[in-house]
């Protein structure tokens, strides 16, 4: 079963890359933006048929390695 996780920086953590991307987009004419935040996306194929169990495994991965909970939040966004 494939599980996707998305990792984003917490609200009050500075995201210099997001800022530069924002500036670049602005320079290209995309004027209607108030903020850009960059994150990470993982697709993990877990050898597990129960979606709840698969989600739980990926949640554990996020807590232990994929995200640093001091600065990042994670969200399991879909399973298929």
């Amino acid at each position: 079963m494939k599980v996707s996780a998305i990792i984003t920086l917490k609200k009050d953590v500075l995201d210099p890359q997001g800022k530069v991307i924002h500036q670049a987009l602005d320079g290209m004419g995309f004027k209607n933006i108030s903020e850009v935040r960059q994150g990470k996306y993982f697709e993990i194929d877990v050898n597990e048929n129960d979606p709840n169990k698969a989600k739980a495994v990926v949640e554990d991965m996020c807590e232990k390695l994929l995200a640093n909970l001091v600065i990042e939040n994670f969200k399991i966004i879909e399973t298929q």
């Binding site: 953590v13 500075l14 210099p16 890359q17 530069v20 640093n68 001091v70 600065i71």
Partner: peptide, 16 residues
């Protein structure tokens, strides 16, 4: 910092 032995994290330099 990743082991948690010292607190905090190290982010990308402010001016990239």
């Amino acid at each position: 910092v990743e082991t948690g032995l010292v607190p905090g994290v190290l982010l990308r330099n402010k001016y990239l």
